[in-house]
Computed example of a mutant assay.
Amino acid sequence: MTRQLDKVYRLDHAVTKTQKVFLSAFGMDWNHVKYRAEKI
């Protein structure tokens, strides 16, 4: 995530396959990451 000039945080890269494996180990998925990023 990066903070843009308008002071809003946005994901700047896609979640990789390896990251998805780690997320699944904690019961999370890509949608959870996207949701949390939007809330910040």
Score class of each variant (00 low, 15 high):
M1I: 09
M1Q: 09
M1N: 06
M1G: 05
T2S: 02
T2W: 03
R3N: 03
R3I: 01
R3P: 01
Q4F: 03
Q4E: 13
Q4D: 13
Q4C: 03
Q4K: 07
Q4M: 06
L5P: 11
L5Q: 12
L5K: 09
L5T: 08
L5F: 03
D6I: 00
K7T: 08
K7N: 14
K7A: 11
V8M: 01
V8I: 03
V8L: 00
V8S: 00
V8E: 00
V8Y: 01
Y9P: 01
Y9D: 02
Y9E: 01
Y9C: 01
R10N: 00
R10T: 00
R10H: 00
R10K: 09
L11Q: 14
L11K: 09
D12E: 13
H13I: 04
H13S: 14
H13G: 08
A14M: 06
A14I: 06
A14R: 12
A14Y: 05
A14V: 09
A14D: 15
V15T: 08
V15E: 02
V15L: 05
V15R: 02
T16P: 07
T16L: 05
T16W: 08
T16A: 04
K17L: 07
K17N: 10
K17Q: 12
K17H: 08
K17V: 05
K17W: 03
T18C: 04
T18E: 15
T18K: 13
Q19I: 02
Q19E: 15
Q19P: 04
Q19T: 08
Q19G: 14
K20Q: 14
K20R: 15
K20P: 06
K20Y: 04
K20I: 10
K20G: 09
K20L: 12
V21L: 07
V21W: 02
F22M: 10
F22V: 14
F22P: 05
L23N: 11
L23Q: 12
S24W: 02
S24Q: 15
S24M: 08
A25I: 05
A25W: 03
A25R: 10
A25T: 10
A25V: 05
F26H: 15
F26Q: 14
F26G: 07
F26V: 05
F26Y: 14
G27F: 08
G27K: 05
G27H: 11
M28H: 12
M28E: 03
M28C: 07
M28Y: 07
D29L: 04
D29I: 06
D29H: 12
W30A: 08
W30N: 10
W30G: 05
W30V: 06
W30Q: 12
W30Y: 10
N31L: 07
N31S: 09
N31V: 07
N31Q: 13
H32D: 15
H32Y: 12
H32F: 10
H32N: 15
H32R: 15
V33E: 06
V33W: 11
V33Q: 09
V33I: 15
V33M: 13
K34N: 11
K34T: 13
K34Q: 14
K34I: 10
Y35K: 01
Y35C: 00
Y35D: 05
R36E: 07
R36F: 10
R36M: 12
R36K: 15
R36N: 10
A37V: 14
A37P: 02
A37W: 03
A37N: 03
A37F: 05
A37M: 06
E38T: 02
E38Y: 10
E38M: 03
E38G: 09
K39S: 11
K39I: 04
K39M: 03
K39F: 01
I40D: 11
I40N: 11
I40E: 11
